[in-house]
Simulated scan of single mutants.
Amino acid sequence: MKIIFAGTPEFAAVALQALHVAGFEIPLVLTQPDRPAGRGMQMHASAVKQFALAHDIEVLQPLSLRLDSKDPERAAQAAAAHARLLATDYDVMVVAAYGLILPRSTLDIKPCINIHGSLLPRWRGAAPIHRAIETGDLETGVTIMEMEEGLDTGPMLLMERVPILPGDTTASLHDTLAALGARMIVDALRARAAGTLHPVPQPDAGVTYAAKIGKEEAALDFSLSSAELGRKIRAFNPFPGAHAEVNGVVIKIWGAEALDAGSDAAPGRILAADAQHGIVVACKHGTLRLTELQKPGGKRLPAAEFLKGFPLEGLSLD
């Protein structure tokens, strides 16, 4: 079986590696254009591109696949990519976190199969891992699905569930689901070749949408409950990183523990900031113990180490 692979971040690169190791022929990879990243804002190739180049796989990086784009450059790149797909001998396209919409013109060439990091139809869309943690879901998983023009609406081929553990962050859950999705796509393609893969329509009930994460969401609002804030901190680790301000200084908060004990203090008031009690903050309901923090230009530190260079006693978080 010959595969064209379309994906961009590490989640996709893990699947691409699994397909390569499993012996599938991969004549072409599609990935997003290089982007500036890091403090120096140097151009950076995606994880998928890096793997492809390291294994002598041809890489295509169009700005768009829409032949009807109103932007002349995007339309030209889409036309070139479409011609390249038509000229390539392949059986199926595997898509994982590609970041570009596949138009009907692409979907009509050959079957397209997607690796999606949720239990569809829950959390269709761009940020299923973040939203599952933020909302307090007890489980998630991976769905392998056939692609159609709707947003993650296609028939399901395989699904596996995993629990969301109390300490899971988006970083840890991402790694779990990336490994699961990589194994599942290999299983799915082998089952497809054997004729034992049977699509099942998604149910109409239970549809939710995982909107893309905005940086503005990472500012913590201590008028929420400690449980809600704890979930947000885990959901926004590593991106965009939950934060709050202390006397105008933005502090990143990477770890926290929701406590049941309440307080009459105003939300955001720091109730304790010492080695014995840690950093405890008043919330609308309950209190929040901060366990890992980072000041501007500094390293991520446990609370006790952070307090040595940044005392917080008697202050408030905004």
Results as ranks from 00 to 15, higher is better:
S172C: 12
L173A: 04
L173M: 14
D175T: 12
T176N: 06
A179P: 05
A179Y: 05
A179K: 12
L180N: 03
G181Y: 00
G181E: 01
G181R: 00
A182Q: 03
R183P: 00
R183F: 00
I185T: 00
I185H: 00
D187Y: 02
R190F: 08
R190H: 14
A191W: 02
A191L: 03
A191Q: 02
R192V: 08
A194N: 12
A194W: 09
G195N: 03
T196Q: 14
T196E: 14
T196M: 11
L197I: 01
P199F: 10
P199W: 13
V200M: 14
P201Q: 12
P201G: 10
Q202L: 00
Q202Y: 01
P203S: 13
D204G: 13
A205D: 14
G206F: 03
V207L: 11
V207Q: 13
T208F: 00
T208L: 01
A211R: 10
A211Q: 04
K212G: 08
E216V: 04
E217G: 10
A218W: 07
L220R: 05
F222N: 00
S223D: 13
S223A: 12
L224M: 13
S225R: 12
S226A: 15
A227F: 13
A227R: 15
E228G: 06
G230L: 06
R231H: 13
K232G: 11
R234W: 04
R234V: 08
R234E: 05
R234N: 08
F236W: 15
N237Q: 13
P238Y: 06
P238N: 11
P238C: 07
F239C: 07
F239Q: 14
P240T: 06
A242F: 05
H243P: 04
H243L: 11
E245M: 10
E245H: 13
V246P: 03
N247Q: 15
G248C: 12
G248W: 11
V250Y: 08
I251W: 03
I251A: 04
K252R: 15
K252F: 11
I253K: 01
W254E: 11
W254D: 09
G255I: 03
G255C: 08
E257T: 06
E257F: 02
L259I: 04
L259Q: 01
